[in-house]
Write a protein that binds this DNA or RNA. Structure first.
Lengths: 181, 181
DNA sequence: AGGCTTTTTGCAACTAGTTGCACAACGGGC
DNA sequence: GCCCGTTGTGCAACTAGTTGCAAAAAGCCT
């Protein structure tokens, strides 16, 4: 049950409307917890019904019929509770590794191209993370919240680094394999 | 839609009953695609209905009586198709990183213990992978299927290595943080 | 033989996430 | 004034995975 807590975190960082949240879930928070706008609207409704958030009383006119939400004390308390609660390590599920295992049985035909696509995409993500690090975490900033956020970003960077290296290695292995299937 | 293909792969490696599959999903295949026994039984039923697998002709089945399955040619073809098909990189979802991000807002109280638990669990998994590597992939074996399976295992080893390092680093940061919340 | 436990299979209900679409409001172009 | 694309919100149906429980066969004990 992480989505509500992802939303609470995002709203604490900055009160937002559903669409703004959706946009923010396409970067930042969404880098390690993705969500679609439908999920977000549904969850906002629930959180409001539970009294963890509320709509900000209307302010600037702007366009549309925007509803902005902010976190109530009960919401902050729930987030703190969840953050501190012990959770079991998630069960791993990686389709790409599964496909490689399958390829050991049914042959590697066609797989190589997709590995290249994945490599490309991990490289792009890595470059983006590095850019964020350069922009948001210059060496002199180290307020506690910054250090935690930087730590999370480092996890992203190191994970993408791992994948680019591993995929590169995998492609090299493929090149050496007899390519019958 | 990976579960059916995980099962096909497992059954091609060795025909099994539902419970045997469940056991195998607790190691090996399950290391990167976990599944519960209920998922597996349901999926076996579907795969049989679709004509991708069949029960081994032993005795007519009844509840509580073992049924073993094997993959039919159509099943192998479907697995080959799926393996070669392009798939988008999965959207990342990691509750632990999310909690760290939340901790930057609501404080780190209580989180440290759970990080230690996770570190312990990743260390255990890493040791297990290393043992499998030692046992199943001595330096002289390199048949093509072995190389692919070894590649997958290397991914597991490197991922667990990353997590142990990152968690160690995170705990070190925590030690330096003012621990008010 | 009678009951007790384990093995093996499975149903049903639930939770979480995805996909496809609907609809209202507003701004801009003509 | 009217169509049209954009912004913003939302419902409904579907797919995938989880949890809790139960029931048939088989072995085990005395």
């Amino acid at each position: 049950m992480s989505l509500p807590h992802a939303i609470l975190t995002a709203l604490l960082e900055k009160p937002s409307s559903g669409l703004e949240l959706t946009r923010r879930f396409d970067k930042s928070i969404g880098y390690f917890w993705s969500a679609t706008h439908q999920q977000i609207y549904r969850e906002l409704g629930k959180l409001e019904a539970e009294g963890l958030i509320r709509t900000l009383p209307a302010e600037q006119p702007a366009r549309g019929q925007k509803k902005s939400y902010e976190v109530l004390p009960a919401g902050r308390a729930e987030l703190a509770r969840w953050t501190a609660a012990a959770q079991d390590p998630k069960t791993m599920r990686d389709p790409l590794l599964l496909r490689l295992r399958a390829a050991a049985v049914v042959g590697t035909a066609g797989l190589e191209d997709d590995l290249r696509r994945h490599l490309e995409s991990h490289r792009r993500q890595l470059a983006e993370y590095r850019e964020i690090e350069r922009r948001d975490f210059p060496p002199d900033r180290d307020a506690p919240e910054d250090r935690l956020r930087h730590l999370v970003l480092r996890a992203g960077i190191d994970l993408e680094t791992f994948w680019t290296q591993w995929l590169t290695h995998a492609l090299a292995e493929f090149a050496e394999l007899p390519d019958a299937d």
